[in-house]
Structures are given as structure tokens and as C-alpha cells.
Amino acid sequence: MALEPGGILHIAHLARLHLLEDDAERYAGELSAILAFIEQMNAVDTGGVTPMAHPFEMTQPLRADIVTEQDRREEYQANAPAVRDGLYVVPKVIE
């Protein structure tokens, strides 16, 4: 399926990516070529085939509900671009 630059801008918005108009044009060409390549798989009849999401049919293992992690907030927040009083700082959300 061929993608138009307008479609690319919509996908970019869903993925929270900022694209310039020129970039959208280029990505439309590249992504359309990739999708055309992917569509080779449509030649295969998959009627009645159960989709496979994982190499093994594993069930999610559960652990005992006990505290295993220590409080390392400062260490984790050392990687944050902006923190104040132990909180992450973001642009104003509520007026």
C-alpha cells in the first residue's frame, strides 16, 4: 500500500515524532517501498492458521508478592533531564 506524505504525518503524530514536510515526502517513498516488500506475505494462504506471538507457548510466570526493590529514587532520577524535589519536571499540563 502506497503512503502519501499526509498519511506519514498522521503516523508520525501517532508515534509522537515531529517531521518536516520534506522529510514526510522522503519517508512516504521509503515506507511505501518497505510495505510493498512486506506484502509478499499476502501470497501465502493463512486460512485457519493461529497467529504466533511468541517462540514458545509460555505462560507468564508469577512471583511471590513481596518487596524486592529498594528505594533508589535519587539514583534513578539522576538520569532525568529535569527534576525538582524528587519529582519529574514537565511543561505545564493543567492551566
Binding site: 499476502n42 501465502v44 492458521v49 493461529t50 497467529p51
Partner: peptide
């Protein structure tokens, strides 16, 4: 796309 790919994935497997 996604469902179809997961089905072909099973065939490959």
C-alpha cells in the same frame, strides 16, 4: 499486516 505476519510466523516455525 500484524495478524497476517503472526500467521506466517507460525508457518515459518
Amino acid at each position: 499486516y500484524y495478524l497476517k505476519a503472526q500467521q506466517v510466523r507460525r508457518l515459518i516455525c
